[in-house]
Write a protein that binds this DNA or RNA. Structure first.
Length: 191
DNA sequence: ATACTGATGGCCT
DNA sequence: GGCCATCAGTATA
């Protein structure tokens, strides 16, 4: 039996408008290699963040130490720490020197679910990785270990196309922000 | 199901 | 010093 190998998305995949990239990432598989093990899940919820045209974006005020990678280049991990407790994972988008990123809000666990349960200190796949902070805990993603890394096999964090069928996509306002609520830049599909 | 709240610390002006 | 791109617990329905 030969298993059809999933294709790793190349950097060029991310080189586009963050809003378009948000939609395009739905159904793709996020993979993190941890202790030699593949931890992965299908991306089912994302949010787009841009630059000067987006008051909710970390990039809105201009370049700062934290958001630097959002401006510099596409196809990299932008990981930030919020609320004193949680890490959130984004993929940088747009062309070089144009700010933009996609926040990964939720994944449906596929490989390594048991390790994810341990990482989360919780039993069962329900609500294991259905939030930006939760999925980082589950996958072991943090600022220290992943921020600024290119999304490649060598980095141990990348995205694959497995041909997962995405049904109807719903768009709505982004979560947890107070500005930019008029943009429907949150996307998701139901499994 | 929705609504509220405390925890907890880095980032930015 | 104020503001968070969050979550788990609790309460209420």
């Amino acid at each position: 039996m030969s298993k059809t190998s999933a294709k790793i998305l190349p950097p060029e995949f991310f080189r586009r408008n963050a809003v378009e990239l948000s939609r395009a990432l739905l159904g793709k598989r996020l993979v993190v290699i941890r202790n030699g093990e593949r931890l992965s899940g299908i991306i089912n919820e994302t949010e787009a963040y841009r630059g000067k045209d987006d008051p909710a974006s970390h990039a809105f005020p201009g370049i700062t130490p934290r958001n630097r990678i959002m401006h510099e280049t596409y196809g990299h991990a932008y990981v930030y720490f919020v609320y004193g407790m949680y890490d959130c994972l984004n993929f940088t988008a747009e062309d070089t020197d144009v700010p933009g990123a996609v926040l990964i809000r939720s994944i449906i666990p596929s490989e390594g679910a048991e390790a994810m349960e341990r990482n989360r200190g919780r039993v069962g796949t329900a609500h294991l990785a259905d939030g930006p902070g939760k999925l980082c805990r589950a996958l072991g993603v943090s600022v220290a270990s992943h921020n600024g890394k290119p999304l490649t096999k060598e980095s141990g964090i990348f995205v694959e196309d497995t041909g997962f069928p995405v049904g109807a996509v719903e768009a709505g306002p982004r979560i947890g922000i107070k500005k930019g609520l008029e943009m429907n830049w949150r996307f998701r599909f139901r499994a």
